[in-house]
Design a protein around this nucleic acid. Structure first.
Length: 276
DNA sequence: CATTACCTGCAA
DNA sequence: TTGCAGGTAATG
């Protein structure tokens, strides 16, 4: 489910609720595979009693920084949501991890499809996670030149390349289609064949669609909610995603849905020519 | 490169 | 019943 804008919105909405609080207990952990490292007993021992110093995002990972140099890294994958609740709120069936805080409130990790993952990382583990991902697209260091370097010599099609987290951190299936439509680039265009003008357009489009989605607090198609349990609004502003058969907002041509790399991809066949 | 696996729920 | 869903890793 969540891509960069949804994880960013989750981090921003969680921070004011939990920063400064101390984790006083792990009240539920009923899906063992969710915690990848360390083993559950050690996981519990290491996080209980630690204060939360910050909540931030790297790529699609939500990072909860704890005292003592530990970071609770959480990936929501397809259906995860992290929310904070008062003590009396019951945890429903799909809540697989519950963390109790020192003010009595609780953090729920709700994950219908059980794809979500949790890691407790030390400084080295966090550095490795960071190194496994490409540049943050909203960082000032992500320039059109940086994008050009990332695409140079890559004969693979542009859309799957955008979904590769080593190319650009945090891009996902929704915003890849959105950015390519905005930049007027066909999803099947070989990356290396994009000229400078197309790369500059794509760079701007990526930043624009992500910033707009954050401004709308992310997209909620099914499961996504922010830290307060609220839906995002960006699904009401989609340019092409999930709009097959509806008119292109630039030229009126019906939007097409094709499969690229096993993923649904939406485009306007008229204003996204194959050459980019 | 494509396919399969991991999971559950919902709509066609 | 089938296909599909915002992600990623592990296979041919």
């Amino acid at each position: 489910m969540p891509e960069l804008p949804e994880v960013e919105t989750a981090a921003r909405s969680l921070a004011p609720q939990v920063v400064g609080r101390t984790i006083v207990g792990v009240e539920r952990l009923d899906w063992e595979r969710m915690v990848e490292t360390p083993p559950a007993p050690l996981f519990r021992e290491l996080i209980v009693g630690r204060r939360i110093l910050a909540v931030r995002r790297r790529s699609k990972w939500l990072l909860i920084e704890l005292e003592g140099g530990w970071t609770l890294a959480i990936h929501l994958r397809m259906s995860g949501r992290l929310t904070v609740h008062d003590a009396a709120e019951p945890a429903r069936h799909h809540v697989h991890l519950v963390l109790r805080l020192d003010d009595g409130r609780r953090i729920f990790f709700d994950d219908e499809r059980k794809f979500g993952r949790v890691r407790l990382l030390d400084a080295a583990g966090l550095a490795a996670l960071d190194a496994a991902h490409g540049p943050e697209p909203l960082d000032e260091r992500f320039t059109a030149e940086a994008l050009a370097r990332a695409l140079a010599g890559r004969r693979t099609r542009i859309k799957p390349l955008l979904l590769d987290q080593r190319t650009i951190a945090g891009m996902g299936n929704i915003y890849a289609s959105e950015a390519l439509w905005l930049a007027r680039i066909h999803p099947l265009t070989p990356a290396a064949s994009l000229n400078t003008g197309a790369i500059v357009a794509l760079h701007g489009a990526i930043r624009q669609v992500l910033a707009t989605a954050i401004a709308h607090e992310g997209s909620s198609l099914r499961n996504y909610r922010n830290g307060y349990g609220r839906q995002g609004q960006n699904q009401e502003h989609f340019l092409v995603y999930d709009r097959a058969g509806m008119p292109c907002q630039r030229c009126g041509t019906p939007i097409e849905r094709i499969i690229v790399g096993q993923r649904s991809t939406f485009l306007c066949p008229v204003c996204q020519p194959i050459t980019g």
